[in-house]
Computed example of a mutant assay.
Amino acid sequence: MGEFQEGKVNLPHYAGHRERLRERFRAAGDEAIADYELLELILFRSIPRQDVKPLAKELLAALGSFAEVIGASEARLRTVKGIGDATILDFKIVHAASRRIARSGMVKRPILSSWSAVIDYCRTAMAYEDREQFRVLFLDKKNQVIADEVQQTGTVDHTPVYPREVVRRALELSATAVILVHNHPSGDPTPSRADVTMTKQVIDAAAPLGIAVHDHIIIGREGHASLKGLQLI
């Protein structure tokens, strides 16, 4: 740390590195910096008096990618030595901002004509969760999103889903269609037999009330799967 000595300050060795990295980012943008350096820029805020380059590299080595670090649960982040409350909060803020940005790409637009934005949003929101979540996108008659809700959160490999609750909520919102989404924390988005069975149960409960199920998307770290695209529904 810098200390006052005879009227001047001895700056720590990392101070110059921080300013050089900030200047490179200001001048050339994110394409000019590596993932660990982008993490450093975030860590500068929560850890102001430490060389954070080793910690940024350790986070990537332990958790995988920049997206996995930012989207990691608090429990996973705490497995990396040096990560405390301030850092976790900053990462959660960045992750929340990324979800808001991704969501803006699909709101007030017909879902079926902006499918890539839907996938981007779902991956941003759910790909790195360590427990299964069952999310429903509720759509109006123009196929625009009127609500986006997590209906259930389960374990690492199972989420209880209640088809009648999905339909009840759709009726409350005056939705005419839904898109079902859930994640596989294992990383593999391949649908299980239970996934297909549950989807058909929701379809059977919704159809008599004029509510369409456009698709069931499964999100994993390794990609996504569409039950409709796979012709499973």
Rank of each mutant, 00 (worst) to 15 (best):
E222M: 09
R45M: 03
G210M: 13
I33K: 09
H214G: 08
I88F: 08
A97P: 00
S73T: 12
H224M: 10
R193H: 10
L63D: 03
D35E: 12
Q144Y: 10
A61W: 03
T87E: 10
G84V: 07
S98Y: 02
A170L: 07
P12R: 02
L209P: 02
E172Y: 10
L173Q: 08
K141F: 07
F25Y: 15
L63S: 04
V136D: 04
G82I: 04
A32H: 12
G229H: 02
D51Q: 03
D204V: 07
I211T: 09
R135G: 02
T159L: 04
D35A: 15
M106V: 14
E68Q: 14
A27H: 11
G64K: 09
E68N: 08
D204G: 06
L55E: 08
M126L: 15
R221I: 00
V145K: 07
M1W: 04
V145P: 01
L230G: 01
Y121N: 04
L173V: 02
M198Q: 14
E74L: 08
D204K: 14
Q133K: 12
P189E: 13
L230F: 13
Q144G: 03
S98W: 00
G187V: 02
M198A: 08
E68F: 02
L89T: 10
K108I: 01
G16M: 13
D30M: 13
S226F: 08
L137D: 00
H158I: 02
L171Y: 01
H182F: 10
V213C: 10
R22P: 00
L230N: 07
R99L: 09
A75H: 09
F138Q: 01
A205C: 04
Q151C: 02
K200N: 14
R135A: 03
A15W: 15
T199K: 11
H95S: 13
A147D: 15
E68D: 09
R49K: 11
G7I: 06
G29H: 03
Q144P: 00
P208L: 12
T153A: 11
